Simulated scan of single mutants.
Amino acid sequence: MRFVERTGSTNSDLAADPSAGEGNWLIALQQDEGRGRQGRAWQSCTGNFHGSTVVQLRPTDPPAPTLALTCGVALIRAVEAAAPATGLILKWPNDLLLGLGKLGGVLLERAGDRVVAGFGVNLASAPELPDRATAALSSVALVSPAAFAPLLAAAFARELERWRGDFPALMALWLESAHKIGTPLTVAAGADGRVEGAFDGLEADGALRLRLPSGEVRVIRAADVTLGAA
């Protein structure tokens, strides 16, 4: 596990380093070019966690996109170990909410036969965003990046082993920590625009099942999901 004072992006650094293997972690106290899913910038506030790790893909592994659920389960377990937070839930596929505010998120990027998983967690402060509510763990406990890093690394190693050995069990753990079946969701899914429906669980490959008002179930494999109706 390596800490640096400042970098552009921990994901980019690991992806560009061919010697970075599975289990390696890079944590930056400040990240100047952090990014999230859907091409968004990730605001890296002082005292928050910004770190990435590597998964070396094996021929027998589940499909790489299902690592998103693995990251989500590891993230919520690490936060639960760090602080007695209540109201933690996972939003598909791997956003972590505290109450209704986004506490953390994960960006997965493929680099050949490796996947780089970048984690961002608002430990100290929550950036103000125009399009979504945010939250910080400091509202319930003070946790430093140095204290959080080994908790996340241990949780990720444990869930990565579960992902390889029993993916259905991993999905069950994700569902236990996620928004309940029937929760209203709004999905921004490319050419389809914004679609409203209710959470109807997961497909066998981890895709989101969205039950439309008509009763039809739409399977979502890539989209921006928000809780509630638009």
Results as ranks from 00 to 15, higher is better:
G165N: 14
S144E: 10
P150G: 04
H179K: 10
L160G: 00
L151S: 10
L137P: 09
I181C: 04
A153C: 02
L151N: 09
L170A: 01
V140C: 14
A155L: 08
L142E: 14
W163D: 05
L151F: 11
E159K: 04
E159P: 07
T186C: 15
F167T: 00
E176F: 01
L152I: 03
P145Q: 01
T186I: 11
D166V: 00
T183Y: 15
P184N: 06
L151I: 08
G165I: 00
R158P: 00
A135F: 13
G182K: 07
A157T: 03
L170D: 04
L173N: 10
S138W: 06
L175S: 12
V140A: 13
I181K: 09
S177Y: 04
A169N: 11
R164S: 00
A153L: 04
S138L: 07
L170C: 02
E176W: 01
A153S: 13
S177A: 14
L170Q: 06
F148D: 05
F156H: 04
G182D: 06
L175Q: 14
M171H: 04
H179S: 00
R164F: 05
L173A: 14
L160C: 01
V143L: 06
A141L: 08
A135K: 12
G165R: 15
P145N: 01
R162V: 10
L151K: 15
A147H: 09
S177W: 05
A149D: 10
F156I: 01
L170R: 07
E176I: 02
R164C: 01
A155I: 04
A155T: 03
A172K: 12
L151D: 06
L160E: 01
P145V: 03
A157K: 12
W174E: 08
L142C: 06
A146W: 13
S138Q: 10
F148M: 05
A146Q: 15
A153K: 13
W163V: 01
P145M: 01
A136K: 09
D166C: 07
F156M: 12
A155C: 08
E161W: 08
F167L: 15
S177L: 02
L137Y: 09
V140I: 10
A146K: 14
L142H: 12
R158F: 02
L137S: 07
E159D: 13
P150A: 09
A141M: 07
L185K: 05
A172D: 13
S139H: 11
V140N: 06
L170E: 06
L185T: 00
L151R: 15
A153G: 09
L152T: 02
P145T: 00
P150L: 11
A157L: 03
A169Y: 09
E161L: 11
A154G: 11
F167A: 04
R162W: 10
L137W: 10
A141R: 13
S177Q: 14
S139R: 15
W163K: 03
W163N: 02
F167C: 03
P168V: 02
L152F: 05
P150N: 09
M171V: 02
S144Q: 11
L173P: 00
L173Q: 14
E159N: 08
G182H: 11
P168C: 03
G182L: 10
S139G: 10
A154I: 00
W174Q: 06
A153I: 01
F156L: 12
A135W: 14
P145L: 02
A135Q: 12
V140W: 08
I181F: 15
W163E: 06
L137A: 03
L152C: 04
P184T: 00
L142T: 09
A136C: 08
S144I: 08
